[in-house]
Amino acid sequence: MIAPFKEIYWYLDLPVRSFRRLGRIILVACHDMGNALIMLFSATLYIRTLWKPRARRETAMQLYVTGIKSLGVITVVAFFTGMILALQTGLELRRFGQEVNIGTAVTIVMIREMGPFMTGLIIAASVGSAIAAQLGTMAVSEEISALEVMSINPNRFLVMPRLVALAVMMPILTVYTNILGILGGGIVGSTQLGVAFQAYLDNATRYAENKDLYVGLFKAFVFGIIIATVACYQGLSTTEGAVGVGRATRQTVIISFLMILIIGYMITRLFYI
């Protein structure tokens, strides 16, 4: 083809190529989502083997890694989240002489949204990425293949304990985040905004409903399942050595963050409108 025509053809073909690329991305995403759901379903079926000593020990280890080892960062983040919320809402409410109501504002925002949301982000970034890196390293060093040829199902041996640990620990950690966030708000209220701590606490418990707490904990439970599924799937499907492990880790954090945001919104929409 003559050079100028070649260039024109390139531009004419651009929409087709873009559409083709978009189609390929959607197909790959659907394929990955399908496989991840199959893995989740398979791991859920293996929860019945949890009573076996090896599974119990591995699950206990994962509970420890997810829960106890994350406490430090969660403590700091939860406390400061509550403090920031109290300060921002308190400064606005002071203009109307309503700063005493920061208790309600902080509590409802924490238990409905910020508690599960912040806990989810922290756990996705710390525990989720660690799971993806560990399973990814196992995949590229043929440890997953070794399990398969020993007829040891990786979904039972590796995914199930992590799934259980995250699904159990996320609501517990969310309760911890909520308590610390509310406490942090109370400290800011009493030291910066002149709201007595007792008045803050009275106000905090006046308008919050049980439903707020349950929906928040349900969100945390769902986020736990999302993080475990994304991290395990990305880890187990890692290829191409160290570069692949890095990619799996990054993908885990990005996909988990996006899903926590989207699913979080959908749950709120479902229960409150």
């Binding site: 196992m138 060093s141 043929e142 440890e143 070794a146 399990l147 040829v149 007829s151």
Partner: peptide, 19 residues
């Protein structure tokens, strides 16, 4: 497949031991 695989033992290139 699990039954068939149990007929095998495999030594992987990097040993593939669980760390």
């Amino acid at each position: 497949l699990e039954r068939m695989r149990r007929r095998f033992g495999v030594l992987f290139q990097g040993a593939a031991l669980l760390q």
